[in-house]
Design a protein around this nucleic acid. Structure first.
Lengths: 116, 116
DNA sequence: ACAATAGTTGAATAATTGTTCAATTGTGGT
DNA sequence: ACCACAATTGAACAATTATTCAACTATTGT
């Protein structure tokens, strides 16, 4: 993402240079887009949405979403790595719950956006 | 996304049936995940970030992000289709600006999330 | 100890997607 | 009318990714 090249000169150098110092650090940029990438999948949105209502185990989530346990587990792992959910083993089952209070707020804002 | 199948029975039917009616419509689900998909790309985040500071034309955005005009134009189209930015032709240049007040709020919330 | 069940994992496959390249459109200046 | 420049477009390519399948781990109940 660093070794790309422009094929043109600036038209309004003043604007470009005024905006440039406001741009986010590479680091922050990756974290932001990675976060949205995680949210950008229907299955994962459903999982978060469900877990907003109640903590649930993998099998129940699979039934609710009408998917295989494997597929659900794979996506839960993505959410777990992103620290959006956390897992707790209770006997034979693993119960998942939301791990981040921002998710609900962001989902609500996004909801406002898409339903306007 | 409809023709998937579970490979198991519910463990807590009560929870599944309590949560089921709260789940989002297919329609809304697609709109939500599509929205996040659009946000889930570093280039597009940078474009939105820049346009939050000032309206800019394609060439200037290309210089700012150190990319080709073509690549920038392709991504601006994605943002345009998603109604997040709008384009206005002024002479030989096309100036883009933000078209949605939710984007800033959502970016801010996401920022809080990733930088905690 | 054994069978049954819940969940995880890795490889394979299919689908999606971002950038490049080349060609094209449209506008302004001369 | 023509040339230079800004931007768009479509095809091609590489990279990423969601689901399936099969194998595996771990736990409960008998």
């Amino acid at each position: 993402m660093e070794n790309k090249r422009t094929d043109c000169e600036a038209i309004n150098i003043d604007i470009v240079e005024k905006v440039r110092p406001k741009m986010p650090e590479m680091n922050l940029l990756y974290e932001l887009s990675d976060f949205f990438k995680v949210m950008g999948d229907g299955t994962r949105i459903q999982l978060l949405w469900a877990l907003e209502e109640s903590e649930m185990c993998v099998g129940d989530l699979a039934v609710l979403l009408n998917m295989t346990k494997s597929a659900v587990s794979h996506q839960l792992k993505v959410l777990r790595v992103a620290k959006l959910v956390r897992a707790e083993k209770k006997g034979k089952n693993v119960y998942y719950s939301l791990n981040d209070h921002h998710v609900k707020l962001i989902l609500e804002k996004a909801l406002e956006h898409v339903s306007e």
